[in-house]
Computed example of a mutant assay.
Amino acid sequence: MDGDEPGTIRPGGRTARVRTAVLRAAGDALAEQGFDHLDLADVARRADVGKTTVYRRWGSVTGLVADLLTDMAEQSLPRARTGSLLGDLKANARLVRKTLTDPRQGPLFTAVIAAATCDARTAEALHRFYETRIKEWAPCVDEAIDRGELPAGTDAEEVIRAVSAPLYYRLLASGDPLDAATADRAAEAAEAAARAGVFVR
């Protein structure tokens, strides 16, 4: 495994427990203090792990954040299968809303997104995270095409992006409430646009 980047190893046993403890500590610190104040020594102290272990395995704050995002993508709930496109898109929107309004996850995402604007490695990790989540949910659009709910050639990934974009806008830009009605409305708008052929390639 010598060729692996720091933070990309996913072993079992004690090493897995160390990774879990360090990533939880990193998430807590990030949510509380933001990216600028994230410190590997502080994370090691919070996780009750030796500093040398953290420095050797993750190498840098950005390496740690990249692994945290990988872990978050791996731990995300699987997509819903409701049998209708609107039902699936509403489930997606509600999951995004739940994550963004969570007392821990919301500030954590805000901190990571802010860091990604000025740190290339964090931006790359964030892009991988969203790519993973979009690919997880895109099949619900393909299934809707197969059922005849949407026109052939609809770009499934663009439909999923259209669901979450208004929710992230409220979190990061407008500060407007992120309630259940907002989540449902985002899903309804994306579904209506998809039915109208807006996302046909």
Rank of each mutant, 00 (worst) to 15 (best):
D71M: 07
P139Y: 05
D176A: 14
V54I: 14
R56P: 02
R56G: 01
P166H: 01
G106D: 06
I9G: 10
R170Q: 10
T52K: 04
S174M: 06
L86G: 06
C118W: 04
R14P: 06
H37E: 11
R121F: 11
R185H: 11
D4T: 11
T70P: 02
E188I: 00
Y130R: 09
D155A: 12
A186G: 02
A91W: 00
L100Y: 15
A31K: 04
A196G: 11
P139W: 10
A165W: 03
F109I: 02
P78E: 12
L68P: 14
T122R: 05
A93N: 04
A25E: 09
I9M: 12
T8Y: 04
G59A: 02
G3N: 08
A29C: 06
R56M: 01
R45M: 05
A93V: 04
R81E: 15
D155I: 01
P11K: 12
D119R: 10
E157Y: 01
A47C: 06
A66I: 02
D2V: 15
R195N: 00
G7S: 05
L30M: 12
D142N: 13
R161N: 08
A31D: 07
R195I: 00
A73Y: 15
A181S: 13
K98I: 00
E124S: 08
A120G: 11
A111W: 05
M1N: 08
A180F: 01
R79C: 04
V61M: 02
R161Y: 04
P139K: 06
D48E: 14
R19F: 03
R56F: 02
K51R: 13
L126D: 15
T110Y: 02
G34S: 09
L167W: 00
D48T: 06
D36L: 10
K135Y: 08
D155L: 03
L69S: 14
A123M: 09
P11N: 10
T154S: 15
A25K: 09
R201T: 11
P78F: 03
W137E: 15
P6A: 08
R56W: 04
R121W: 12
A196I: 02
A181N: 07
L23W: 02
T110P: 01
T20E: 12
L89H: 00
A138P: 03
R104G: 10
R14Q: 11
L38N: 01
D28K: 13
C140R: 13
G27V: 11
A173T: 11
S174Y: 04
A29I: 06
A193D: 00
S174I: 13
R81T: 07
D142Q: 13
D176W: 02
T101I: 08
G83A: 09
A120P: 11
L30N: 01
A120V: 15
L23H: 09
